[in-house]
Structure formats: structure tokens, C-alpha cells
């Protein structure tokens, strides 16, 4: 009896606050935009009786979706979100791999400390970490001041409010998400495997590609999913660093909702974003499942 209570409480909570809201989003994405409160019709009211609800269901249609597909603004926002997320995931991997490798090969007694220093930025505010880059990247910012003083450049570089700044922001913010799974899989590799490879005549750089790298693939896969999925829907980074010229779907959704107050379009954008993300989310769950089974 108590067992069912323990199951029921979190279960009902998640259905109420996670599952049902998605159906509401879907329903509103099929509604008409209105200038009223709330800004859409029809509004369901269970007290009106079944006939009225049935009539209102008839009013729902996919008009907002055809609108999104007909307007290039939205489709290019989806495509550029995916492109930006993919490029930054790759860049994150390039930076995270040597760091995770160095950590995994550091003396044992140092490893917990190094781990803590990777996790520490994750605990500090995301917003603040993104904000920190504004002062560095803007035209009269510290990076340009430094480079001008060193004589590397004669004209300030325009990085702020470009896609480049978004890449930097994503790589910086999501680096711990990539380093941790990489470190976990690299740290597990038995050092004797490399010794065995060298003993069998493989020079260290070759042993890396033949032994270490293949064994770290589960970490690479997990890290890439952990960076790519949230990056696609990212709002704060493109908004603060990307300026008006960077199109990302999270930003589009935000402005549909807050600036245009068009809730049905914002909902349709959300539904489509979710559809875009379902493949990587399911892929991620599948990869995690496989890793768990292999670990057994």
C-alpha cells in the first residue's frame, strides 16, 4: 500500500507538471491567435459540457504549422540552430578532449581536485558566465584592447553580435558537460592496455588511436549529446552574444511569446523544436542504456 503511495506521488506530479503541459502546448498550437486574455481561442472549459467542447475541438487546425513552414524566417531559424549546435559541439569536443585526457592521466591524488575545478564553473550562474564574455568580446572590449596593444591587429575585430561569439559562448558554457563523460570513460581505461600496445610494438601516438580513442567513444557520444541537445534550444547565449543577426529557434520562440504575444505560434514553434530534438534525445537514452548494459 505504502509502496503505491511512493510511486504515485512523483508519478502524478510529473504527469501534472510535465506531461499534461505538453498536451496543452500542442492544443494551443492548433488554436487561433486573439488579442485578449488569454491570447488564443478556443478556450476549453470543462464546465460547459461535452457538446461545447466537441464543437471547439472542431475549431482546431494546423494553420500555424503551415504558416511556420511557409515563412523562411522559421525554417532558417531551425536549420541555423542545428548548424550552430553541431559546430559548437564539435569545437567543445576538440577543446574538452585534451583537458579530459590530461586529467585522466594526472597523478591519482590530483584527480578529485581537478574534477572539482571542472565542476565549479557549472555551479556558478550560467547567466553570469555568459555575461563575462560580453566585456571581453565587444569591439572596445578586453580582447581587442589586448590585441591592439600587442600590435597583432590594427583594427578592432568584430566578434560580439556574430555567430562566432555564440560558438564561444556555447563552448565555454557547456565545456564541463563534455569534459565529465570524457574523463569518466578515459579514466576507466586500464593503463596496462597502453603498456601492452607499446610492448607489442605500437608507438605512443599510434597506441592512442588504436587503444585509447576507441575505448573513449562512449564518453564522446554521451558528451556530444549532452552539449548538442540543450544547445539547439539555447536562448540566453544567442540573445546576449549573438545579437540580431544570429537566428536561433530558442530566441524566435522567446520573441514570439514575449514580443509578439502570439502564443499559438510560440506553441507551434515549441512542438516543432521538440520534434527536431526527439531523435537526438531518444538516441541519447539508447546510448546510455547500452553503456549501462556494457558496464554490467
Amino acid at each position: 500500500m505504502r509502496k503505491w503511495l511512493v510511486i504515485a506521488i512523483p508519478y502524478v506530479w510529473m504527469i501534472l507538471f510535465f506531461l499534461i503541459p505538453f498536451f496543452i502546448v500542442f492544443k494551443i498550437s492548433l488554436s487561433e491567435s486573439e488579442i485578449s486574455i488569454p491570447p488564443y481561442t478556443p478556450v476549453f472549459d470543462i464546465f460547459e459540457g461535452w457538446e461545447s467542447i466537441k464543437a471547439k475541438i472542431g475549431e482546431l487546425d494546423f494553420e500555424k504549422y503551415s504558416f511556420i513552414f511557409s515563412d523562411e524566417l522559421y525554417t532558417s531559424a531551425y536549420l541555423s540552430s542545428i548548424k550552430i549546435a553541431a559546430v559548437s559541439t564539435f569545437l567543445t569536443l576538440l577543446i574538452a578532449y585534451p583537458l579530459a585526457y590530461g586529467m585522466a592521466r594526472a597523478p591519482r591524488e590530483w584527480q578529485p581536485t581537478l574534477m572539482m575545478f571542472v565542476i565549479l564553473p557549472f555551479w556558478t550562474s550560467f547567466l553570469i558566465r555568459v555575461y563575462a564574455w560580453i566585456g571581453i568580446l565587444k569591439n572596445e572590449g578586453l580582447l581587442n584592447a589586448l590585441l591592439l596593444n600587442l600590435g597583432v591587429i590594427s583594427e578592432p575585430l568584430t566578434i560580439m553580435n556574430t555567430t562566432m561569439a555564440v560558438y564561444i559562448g556555447i563552448v565555454y558554457s557547456y565545456l564541463p558537460f563534455m569534459v565529465l563523460p570524457l574523463y569518466a570513460s578515459l579514466e576507466k581505461i586500464d593503463g596496462r592496455l597502453l603498456e601492452a600496445a607499446e610492448d607489442l610494438g605500437s608507438p605512443p601516438w599510434k597506441a592512442f588511436w588504436q587503444v585509447t580513442f576507441p575505448l573513449s567513444i562512449p564518453g564522446i557520444v554521451a558528451g556530444c549529446f549532452l552539449v548538442f541537445i540543450p544547445a539547439v534550444g539555447e536562448f540566453v547565449i544567442p540573445d546576449l552574444l549573438g545579437g540580431s543577426e544570429t537566428l536561433m529557434i530558442g530566441k524566435t520562440l522567446w520573441s514570439e511569446f514575449f514580443n509578439n504575444r502570439d502564443w499559438p505560434v510560440a506553441s507551434a514553434v515549441a512542438v516543432l523544436l521538440l520534434l527536431v530534438l526527439i531523435i537526438p534525445i531518444v538516441g541519447f537514452q539508447w546510448a546510455q542504456q547500452r553503456a549501462r548494459e556494457a558496464g554490467r
Binding site: 510535465f18 503541459p21 496543452i24 502546448v25 534550444g233 530534438l277
Partner: peptide, 18 residues
């Protein structure tokens, strides 16, 4: 597990609409 990777804009919007 889904909310761990769910974009915040979707979570926020869906809860608001609820």
C-alpha cells in the same frame, strides 16, 4: 530523464500554459 536535456524555453512555455 527528459527534462534533463529539455530546452528551457519549452519547459517554461509549457508550464506557463498549464
Amino acid at each position: 530523464f527528459a527534462p534533463l536535456v529539455m530546452p528551457e524555453v519549452i519547459t517554461g512555455l509549457s508550464l506557463l500554459l498549464l
